[in-house]
């Protein structure tokens, strides 16, 4: 083996070592947060007497939140008898309409259509404008006058602000951030979410 070959092998080993350190040395799969802050508020669905509670802090304009949305829906559909899912808002400052979208979803919640509205927001994410919120409410047969009034009510704004405040208090790195029974999940892959939740459900 020539000296040059040996040098390249050393370079390869060092690179693999650095990558392995970054991948495996970046902490455990879970991180502890204040559970009283994680699960207060939000919009919940699934079991009223859950074995496991999954909480998501999300932004309707975040592409990853859109990607994970069907994964969460599938989890609820499959395990709704034992799983409670709490959706909480974390409208990010780089998305100018994110706070308004959260207000719209909360206004739809007051008419029992939060989950349908949430799905429509994610489906239309790429094309959402200021006018979209009312249009979606019409599509979902909501009482539009009430929807518009609720959207700007102090109750709705306060709810979104509380979620946002909690997200900041928890020092969340971004969206989506998931918590399983109050434990923060460090996900590198959304397939892991299903795996981790179902493992916990089957414990």
């Amino acid at each position: 083996m020539s000296n040059d070959t040996k040098v390249l092998l050393v370079i390869a080993l060092v690179t693999i070592g650095v990558i392995a350190f970054i991948v495996f040395g970046s902490g455990s799969a879970t991180q502890s947060y204040d559970p009283t802050v994680v699960n207060r508020g939000g919009v919940a669905t699934g079991s009223a007497t859950p074995k496991v509670t999954l909480t998501e802090f999300s932004d309707f304009f975040c592409p990853s939140c859109r990607t994970v949305n069907p994964v969460v829906d599938q989890l609820i559909q499959k395990n709704g008898d034992r799983l409670k899912f709490i959706y909480r808002h974390f409208p990010l400052p780089q998305h100018p309409l994110a706070f308004k979208a959260a207000q719209a979803a909360e206004a739809a919640n007051l008419q029992g259509k939060f989950w349908d509205y949430k799905n429509r927001l994610f489906e239309d994410q790429e094309n959402l404008t200021d006018a979209s919120f009312e249009l979606i409410s019409k599509d979902l047969n909501l009482d539009v006058a009430k929807f518009n009034k609720d959207m700007n009510s102090s109750e709705v704004i306060g709810k979104v602000q509380r979620d946002e405040r909690d997200a900041k208090k928890l020092n969340l790195p971004g969206t989506p951030t998931f918590f399983l029974d109050g434990e923060g999940l460090n996900l590198t892959n959304f397939a892991d979410l299903t795996k981790i939740v179902e493992e916990k459900l089957n414990q």
């Binding site: 990853s64 990607t67 994970v68 996900l187 590198t188 892959n189 959304f190 397939a191």
Partner: peptide, 10 residues
Amino acid sequence: KQYLSNSPVL
């Protein structure tokens, strides 16, 4: 890996 598993990218 992230693209093929439809997972988010850091």
